[in-house]
């Protein structure tokens, strides 16, 4: 199975922020948070299309998120660089001593379901 190494940068998105303010436990917040924006080249390397699921993992932890192709044009291509909104999902990939602004992660296609907030809560208690 294809694997791609990326640096995931935490970004802000007003729609994700709005959804989180209404409820951290909603489907809407999950769909906007458990989402990784990838360069088209990385999408091709992983053989995934918009909405396909990816397992993102590193030493800190792992999550299943949906993939989405970046809208940046060829001139601003960013292979190896991915974006996620700051959220409990992103924080699964942040180790205690790392700079929180960005993390390294390995991505691979998966058939597993997108990580639920209840799963994240269970991990914290484990």
């Amino acid at each position: 199975m294809a694997e791609v190494e990326v640096v995931v940068v935490a970004v802000r998105d007003i729609f994700q922020d709005e959804a989180g303010r209404k409820s951290l436990f909603s489907e809407e917040y999950k769909s906007l948070s458990a989402l990784i924006i990838l360069d088209k080249q990385d999408m091709a390397g992983l053989a995934v299309k918009d909405g396909d699921k990816l397992l993102a993992k590193n030493d800190a932890g792992s999550i299943v998120v949906a993939a989405r192709a970046s809208k940046d044009d060829a001139k601003e291509a960013h292979p190896g660089l991915a974006f996620m909104c700051s959220s409990p999902w992103y924080n699964q990939l942040v180790s205690d001593d790392s700079c929180q602004g960005s993390v390294k992660a390995t991505l691979a296609p998966t058939a597993e379901a997108i990580t639920a907030i209840s799963e994240i809560q269970a991990r914290m208690k484990s």
């Binding site: 942040v94 790392s98 484990s126």
Partner: peptide, 12 residues
């Protein structure tokens, strides 16, 4: 909401 905002290790 520290459990949402902090790295997983710290949150745990």
């Amino acid at each position: 909401d520290p459990l949402s905002e902090l790295p997983i290790g710290t949150a745990r």
